[in-house]
């Protein structure tokens, strides 16, 4: 269903120059490569582990938000970037994985007792971990084979979990900081707008499936 929609939309969308998807991955991984390089060469400030951890988390969140902008961009502005959505979504997952590895290995030194206590006792870590768990099946099924196996509708339904992941990421970010600094609130507001847009649109729509005029 999603694929078909993309073909339809692509016909009426802007004629954007198409770039190979591999380029999205290459560009997308530049921040991670730079961060690791900067970390090893002592360019991440006084608390390099914390900077690395936070930056990887923020990039995961940015890519997650980027996947959520694809549909509104297409529907509202006829800008069709659908063919890059899978790559962007997977980048969000890879960054979340790197963020998690930084926390477990570099921050906690694989102290599983401390990590376990954190997951149970600390809401922001509970939420962060749950958000990552949600992203796992989405990443695993982000391929054509899975879409065929699951069927388009079931696959699309499963991938609606990304909305929950976005809410989880927003809460995770708000809960990790002291007081109410602006940055996590801005991210949360963006998520609210992107999800609110979908809610309003789904409420305004008739329950019967939309048909294109013959």
């Amino acid at each position: 269903m999603q694929e078909r929609a993309s073909v339809q939309a692509a016909k009426k969308g802007f004629a954007l120059p198409q770039v190979p998807k591999i380029l999205v991955y290459i560009v997308g991984f530049i921040p991670a490569v730079w961060l690791f390089y900067a970390g090893i060469t002592d360019q991440l400030g006084a608390d390099p582990m914390r900077t690395l951890e936070q930056e990887l988390g923020e990039w995961a969140f940015r890519f997650l938000i980027a996947t959520l902008t694809i549909t509104p961009l297409r529907q509202l502005f006829s800008v069709n970037l659908l063919r890059y959505r899978r790559a962007i979504g997977l980048l969000a997952f890879y960054y979340a994985l790197l963020h998690l590895i930084t926390y477990t290995v570099l921050d906690q030194g694989l102290d599983f007792a401390a990590i376990g206590a954190d997951i149970v006792k600390r809401p922001y870590i509970t939420i962060g971990m749950a958000t990552f768990v949600i992203l796992v099946p989405l990443a695993i099924t982000s391929n054509n084979l899975s879409i065929r196996r699951l069927g388009g509708q079931a696959w699309a339904k499963l991938h609606k979990l990304v909305y929950l992941a976005a809410i989880g990421a927003a809460l995770h970010f708000i809960l990790v900081v002291k007081s109410w600094p602006l940055e996590p609130l801005i991210y949360a507001a963006i998520v609210a707008v992107l999800l609110g847009y979908r809610l309003v649109r789904s409420l305004g729509r008739k329950p019967a499936p939309r048909r294109r005029p013959a």
């Binding site: 608390d47 401390a114 206590a117 006792k121």
Partner: peptide, 8 residues
């Protein structure tokens, strides 16, 4: 929201 048992 976080442990105070250790520090960096």
């Amino acid at each position: 929201r976080w442990s105070q048992a250790t520090e960096r």
